[in-house]
Measured scan of single mutants.
Amino acid sequence: MQIFVKTLTGKTITLEVEPSDTIENVKAKIQDKEGIPPDQQRSIFAGKQLEDGRTLSDYNIQKESTLHLVLR
């Protein structure tokens, strides 16, 4: 499925993911596309910070959902 990741600069990245993917996985995909190390990424969805060990389905993130990426 496709999800979108919006950065603070307003750029939107499209990722191909599975509901079973962990947040860690997703951060690795963002690193592949953007070169941002996962330890600098904070992902926010529906106002909640997403934890690395959880999966997209844990957070009820579905296709075409938009995550927000904040850098630390």
Rank of each mutant, 00 (worst) to 15 (best):
L71R: 08
D52L: 05
S43W: 15
K33W: 11
V26F: 04
E18N: 12
P38Q: 12
I13Y: 07
I44K: 03
K63A: 15
L67P: 01
I23Q: 01
K6T: 10
E18F: 14
D58N: 03
K33R: 10
G53K: 11
I13L: 08
K63H: 15
M1V: 04
L15P: 00
D32L: 14
K6D: 04
K29L: 10
V5T: 00
I61N: 01
E18Y: 15
H68W: 14
P19L: 09
I23N: 01
K48Q: 14
E18H: 14
F45T: 05
L50Y: 03
S57Q: 13
T55H: 05
I3T: 00
I44F: 15
G35R: 05
Q40T: 10
G47V: 03
T14F: 07
S43I: 15
S65I: 04
D32T: 11
T14W: 06
V5F: 04
I30W: 02
D32H: 10
L8G: 10
L71H: 09
D21Y: 07
E34F: 14
L69H: 03
D58K: 00
K48W: 08
T66F: 07
L56K: 00
A28N: 11
Q31M: 13
D39G: 12
P19W: 05
E51C: 10
L8I: 12
G53N: 13
E24Y: 14
V5H: 00
G53F: 13
E34K: 05
R54C: 11
S65V: 06
E16P: 03
T66E: 07
N60Y: 05
Q2R: 14
Q62M: 10
Q31T: 10
D52S: 07
D39R: 10
K29W: 04
L69Q: 04
Q2Y: 13
I36Y: 13
S65E: 08
P19C: 06
S20N: 12
I44Y: 15
E34Y: 13
E64S: 09
K27L: 14
K6W: 05
P19S: 08
I44R: 04
N25E: 12
S57A: 14
L56V: 06
V70H: 08
D52Q: 04
Q2M: 12
Y59C: 02
D39E: 13
I36P: 07
F4A: 03
G35E: 04
R42G: 13
S20A: 07
D52R: 03
P37R: 10
G35S: 06
Q31S: 12
Q41N: 07
P19G: 07
E24I: 09
K6F: 06
M1W: 07
L15E: 00
Y59L: 05
V70S: 07
I44W: 14
I36M: 08
E18A: 12
T9V: 07
T55Y: 04
R54W: 10
L50V: 03
G53R: 08
D21V: 03
D32V: 12
K63R: 10
I36G: 08
E51M: 10
Q40M: 13
I36A: 07
V70F: 10
G47H: 07
I3V: 05
G35I: 04
V17Q: 00
N60S: 07
P37D: 10
F45M: 06
T9D: 14
D21S: 06
I23S: 02
V26T: 02
A28C: 06
K29M: 12
G35C: 05
E24N: 07
E18G: 06
N25T: 13
A28S: 10
P38F: 14
E16L: 13
K27S: 05
D32S: 11
G47W: 06
E51Q: 10
D39N: 12
S20H: 11
I36S: 06
D58F: 13
M1R: 03
T14R: 10
I61P: 02
T12E: 04
A46T: 04
Q62C: 04
R72V: 14
S20K: 07
E64R: 07
Q40H: 13
T55E: 01
I3A: 00
R72K: 13
V17P: 00
N25I: 14
R72A: 13
V70G: 06
I30R: 00
K33Y: 11
A46C: 12
V5W: 01
D32K: 13
R54F: 12
V17Y: 04
N25L: 13
T66G: 02
E34H: 11
D52P: 09
L50E: 01
F4D: 01
E51F: 06
D58G: 02
T12N: 03
